[in-house]
Amino acid sequence: MPEARVITYREAVREAMVQAMRHNEEVFLMGEDVGVYGGAFGVSRGMVEEFGEDRVVDTPLSEAGFVGLCTGAALLGMRPIAEIQFSDFITHCMDQLVNQAAKVRYMFGGEASVPLVVRTPGGAGTGAAAQHSQSLEAWFVHVPGLKVVMPSTPYDAKGLLLAALDDPNPVIFYEHKLLYNRKGEVPEDLYRVPLGEAALSREGEDVTLVAAGLMHHYALEAADALSGEGVEAEVIDLRTLSPMDHRTVARSVEKTGKLVVVEEDVKTCGWGAEVVSRIVESESFYALDRSPARVAAADVPIPYNRRLEAYVRPTPEKVVEAVKALLDARVGVYA
């Protein structure tokens, strides 16, 4: 066996784009500073040199315009990848995504489709303050017609991006700024990780932790810490927020009886609420022996000061605390 190749999350995303573009002339990348600058986070570095300015396209600051353009090109069967420089700026193209890309197929009676991929880095932890740190992915989970992907490992980043590019629907692909330098094993071939399938990344008997993106790593760190105290957490990486694989969560909850969701977005109406609802609305409800818990960001914008920022965000320590609080809680048996 040759030794598995290790690359960064950034390189994995780039490799998926490069391989898709080599494979299919109809794939192109469009966004602000994606060309010679290589993208604000260096994800597309080197791509314009290979594919030229017609396929790695620097746009003006016109997010509504170029995401609309990509929607139209997708409607015509092309395979656009739009990059929104920071996920906060996705607000500028909400109409194109929510009223156009998401609805076209349904409104037109299933006679059309929009195979669009929008890649965008989200999340906090970089000191970029309130307008460059948000986690708005739950908004898109709320829109039928859109799929939402949030990979946590280089392996999944590549496989999910390739799957997103095969998918006939608009997909919002959330990267995380703090994951770009994270390394992992990534095969060189064109493999896919199916959309809508969660991964069980750690087995345990005592509590189920459900997370996605960067938070998946926080959940794993918390699980390690808990293990030292005799608590074995099972960890599920959702990988795709929409469609949401609640069945994998349910199977785990039926084993552990305890559910803690770890999400980076603000708690109120975050996607974690959807995970919890799906469990408590189902048969799995009866397997729960504690009320479910959510570890999420406080319901505030992200502050600039480093300590304040850490204070409002989820951390592995907060996950550990939440699990302990859950275990200490009164068992909810009512007559």
Partner: peptide, 27 residues
């Protein structure tokens, strides 16, 4: 100016008439 919550991109002094730096281009 922002009690440490804004940083470089959000310096403002609204009462003096400086209605804020802005992290959103065109914002």
């Amino acid at each position: 100016y922002c009690r440490g919550k804004g940083g470089s991109m959000h310096i403002a002094d609204v009462s003096a008439g400086m209605l804020g730096a802005n992290g959103i281009v065109g914002g």
